[in-house]
């Protein structure tokens, strides 16, 4: 399986701190693939904010670190 992934069909990225294999090539595709299509979320890639309107243009690359966050209780 490892060999197959390295063949290029999937990217190794990190989503919310978890190592993840993805077929998505853009952040917008990842949001759908990872099950956030209907969720109220905001995103960042490699520490930089990516606005919702820019997700479909944001290409993913091997090793990218993606944050997907939503509203929570806070002090």
């Amino acid at each position: 399986m490892e060999q197959q992934f390295e063949a290029g069909s999937r990217l190794r990225i990190v989503v919310n701190g978890e190592p993840t294999l993805t077929e998505a090539r853009t952040l917008a595709q990842l949001i759908i693939e990872a099950g956030f299509a209907d969720a109220r979320v905001a995103t960042a890639v490699n520490g930089d904010f990516v606005p919702e309107r820019a997700r479909s243009e944001r290409q993913l690359a091997e090793g990218d670190r993606v944050e997907i966050v939503s509203p929570r209780q806070g002090g």
């Binding site: 919310n16 701190g17 990872a34 099950g35 956030f36 969720a39 109220r40 979320v41 905001a42 944050e67 997907i68 966050v69 939503s70 509203p71 929570r72 209780q73 806070g74 002090g75």
Partner: peptide, 22 residues
């Protein structure tokens, strides 16, 4: 009121529920 942002779990609705409450 103060609020925060935190990592959402896949398919999670915790954020949406909290937002509706607020």
């Amino acid at each position: 009121v103060t609020v925060s942002v935190r990592r959402e779990s896949a398919g999670g609705k915790a954020g949406q529920r909290f937002w509706e409450l607020i």
